[in-house]
Each structure stands twice: as C-alpha cells, then as structure tokens.
Amino acid sequence: MAVLPIRIIGDPVLHSPASLVDEITDEIRTLVADMYETMDAAPGVGLAAPQVGVPLRIYTYSYVDDDEQPWRGVLINPVLWISPPEPGAPDPDEESEGCLSFPGERFPLRRSDRVLLTAIDLEGAAVRIEVDGWRARIMQHEFDHLDGILYVDRLSDGDWKTVQKIARKRGWGKPGVSWTPGIDDLES
C-alpha cells in the first residue's frame, strides 16, 4: 500500500465526470487499498478516486456513527438519491465542511440531511446505504467528486471569491498541483 498525492483544486481530473468501473481487477483493489491509506494519513473521512488522479467512480469513507460504531467502506459506481435540502443559509457552526483537495479551509454549505446510495463493493456485491446528518454530508461530498464538482463550487458568491483569493495566494487553481499526506506541510 502507498500514500498517494492528493490533487488540489484546478487539476482537470477534479473538474471532469469520472468513468464507471467496468470490472473489479487487482489494479482496482490496489487503488482502493492505497486510497484507504491516503485517506487515513491525510486524515480525512472520505476520498474519491479523482482526488488521487484516477478518473473512476470510486470513493472510500470512514467515520464513527452516533453509537460510536466505526463504519468504513468503499463504493464503486454509486448512485445517489437525496431529498431537497432545507431552504435558507447554512449554519456556519453546524454545516461547514472541508476538502482534501482544498486543504486547510472550511466553508458553510447547505446539504440534504438524508441520502440513499446504492453501489457495489470490492467483491462486486450490492451495497445500500441510507444515512442522515453528518454521514449524509460525507456521502454527498464524495459523490460530487465523481461528477467533477468540488464543494467550493457550491458556495455562495462571497465565499467563492474568498476561495479564489486563497487559491491564487497558494498557487493553486492550475493543473498538476498536489500534496502528499505525511510529506507536504500545507500550513498557511
């Protein structure tokens, strides 16, 4: 297993829809193992294949639920159903999120409180996940990566302008910029 470089905003693989996985091969299994290691090293609660430069519809996740039970998994070719989010501005204390592809920053974003996903796992078995709250946020965030959408693309105009200033200041927003957990220090 290896910790992979994580692409940063501006890299084309992050801004294009990912392709379906046709077959679960040894290469896919290795990719998923590397994604887990990279996600844990970052640390993050989710990581999509495009974030490590692979344009495939795969993401890993890892979180602890309300009952202190750990959940860890991989979704391959997921399909997402959401209910519309409540109207109004997001609560910055309760609805902020961050992203390993825009590291070190958090912005408020309104998301649906409940989601249902279907997918397959590494053995090709059907997976069905129905979650709410913070777990629903994780699933929506990672699913967006598969469609070439970063959470910062969904922000209000004011926050989007702040994102652009940060990206320019840090030399992001262009192809080929990445960071490797455990190696690169991204402190601003």
Rank of each mutant, 00 (worst) to 15 (best):
T30D: 14
E105V: 14
A126M: 11
H141Y: 10
V32R: 03
A48E: 02
F102S: 09
A33G: 06
P43A: 06
V32I: 08
G104W: 11
F143S: 01
M35G: 04
A126E: 14
E23L: 10
G98C: 10
T30Y: 08
P50Y: 02
Y63P: 03
P108H: 02
R114Q: 14
A48R: 00
M39P: 02
G98S: 05
P92G: 05
G46S: 06
G53I: 11
P87H: 04
V32C: 06
G46Q: 03
M35W: 05
D34A: 07
I76D: 07
S112R: 09
L116R: 11
R137Y: 08
P85F: 02
E97F: 09
P85Q: 04
D121A: 14
A18P: 01
W71K: 11
L31Y: 02
L80K: 03
L116Y: 04
I149P: 00
L20H: 12
R106I: 13
M39W: 07
W81F: 10
R135D: 13
P92S: 13
P55E: 13
R111Q: 06
Y63K: 03
M139S: 02
R135F: 14
R72Y: 05
G133I: 07
E68W: 13
R72E: 14
A41I: 03
L47W: 00
R137H: 07
I82E: 13
L100H: 01
L20G: 00
E95G: 04
V64I: 15
I138D: 05
P70M: 14
Q51D: 09
V64K: 14
L146E: 08
A42T: 13
E123M: 15
G133L: 11
L75Y: 06
I58M: 11
D113M: 05
L80V: 08
T60A: 12
V64T: 15
P87D: 10
E23G: 01
G53S: 11
E94F: 11
D34N: 15
L116D: 00
V32E: 08
D67E: 15
D93T: 09
G73W: 04
A18F: 08
D34K: 07
M39Y: 03
V32W: 07
V79W: 04
P70F: 13
Q69P: 01
G148F: 05
P43F: 09
